[in-house]
């Protein structure tokens, strides 16, 4: 009884907000030209959806996010594992990582455009950069924080170096690696909008900036809704993959 009430509440709140928004706009309490209204947005969004325009831009952005993510996550994981496992790799790369990590990735955008040009590559690179550091740092601390007793067990039962990496270090670090993926995905969504601001011809980020140029508030809101949807499916997808890859973390004991 109590539970179903609570569930109903969480469905009710967005509906209430939408109704409130519509009313405020209708009664001109807020400026309709700036804040639009749910019905006006729907009127613009539906044709965009049916014509396939929205899906087209969505697809472009999804491709960039996935490619950029992989481009950053794979090297980040490899270097993070190596830095966690080998002290000499760690001492070599640690100062470089510490020095470059705090630079806001957006600040690198102009440099990346100069180096990689206005094409597709610069967009992937900026996303990859943001993802790379977060995955690297999480993976490394995942390896470094494996409990001592697991290292003792591996040693006592005669695990060689290679066996140790495969049976203890990598699986032991996996939960932290996935935590890194999730944070990195948030950053990737942030960076796609910035990347599509400059010199893009398509994509959800581009739609937002174009709507800004045209003062087309309804299209802008439509793109924002798609953005939030993208965030939802990517985090849902990562959760799904995590459950498949880390079945032992699935149900917490007690």
């Amino acid at each position: 009884m109590q539970n179903s009430m609570i569930k109903k509440l969480s469905i009710l709140s967005p509906i209430l907000i939408l109704i409130l928004w519509e009313m405020l706009s209708r009664f001109h309490i807020i400026d309709e030209r700036l804040f639009s209204s749910p019905l006006l947005i729907l009127k613009v969004m539906l044709p965009l959806l049916i014509s396939g325009e929205l899906l087209f831009h969505m697809w472009i952005s999804i491709k960039r996010i996935i490619l950029g993510f992989l481009l950053g996550a794979v090297p980040g994981m490899v270097l993070g594992l190596s830095m966690g496992l080998f002290p000499f790799v760690r001492s070599f790369f640690q100062p470089l990582v510490s020095a470059t990590f705090p630079i806001p990735k957006l600040a690198l955008m102009p440099l990346i455009l100069i180096i990689f040009g206005l094409g597709e590559v610069s967009k992937l690179v900026i996303i990859a950069l943001g993802v790379f550091y977060l995955v690297l740092i999480n993976t490394m601390s995942g390896v470094l924080n494996i409990e001592q007793i697991y290292l003792d067990v591996a040693k006592n039962y005669g695990a060689g170096k290679k066996e140790f990496y495969l049976t203890v270090a990598f699986p032991g670090a996996l939960p932290m690696i996935f935590a890194g993926f999730k944070v990195a995905m948030g950053t990737a969504l942030l960076l796609i909008v910035a990347a599509e601001l400059s010199a893009a011809k398509a994509g959800i980020g581009w739609m937002i900036w174009r709507a800004y140029d045209m003062f087309d508030i309804e299209t802008m809101f439509s793109a924002l809704i798609v953005m939030s949807f993208l965030g939802f499916i990517f985090s849902y997808g990562l959760d799904l993959i995590e459950k498949l890859v880390i079945p032992w973390k699935n149900t917490e004991a007690e």
Binding site: I149, Y150, D152, Y157, A159, T167, P171, W248
Partner: peptide
């Protein structure tokens, strides 16, 4: 030698049979 450790020493990421056969795998 093989050691039975104090407290939890099973690898959480391995099934019971993989844990029990870990020494043999090595």
């Amino acid at each position: 030698n093989s050691m039975v450790f104090q407290g939890d020493s099973l690898f959480p990421w391995m099934t019971v049979i993989d844990n029990a056969s870990y020494g043999l795998k090595m």
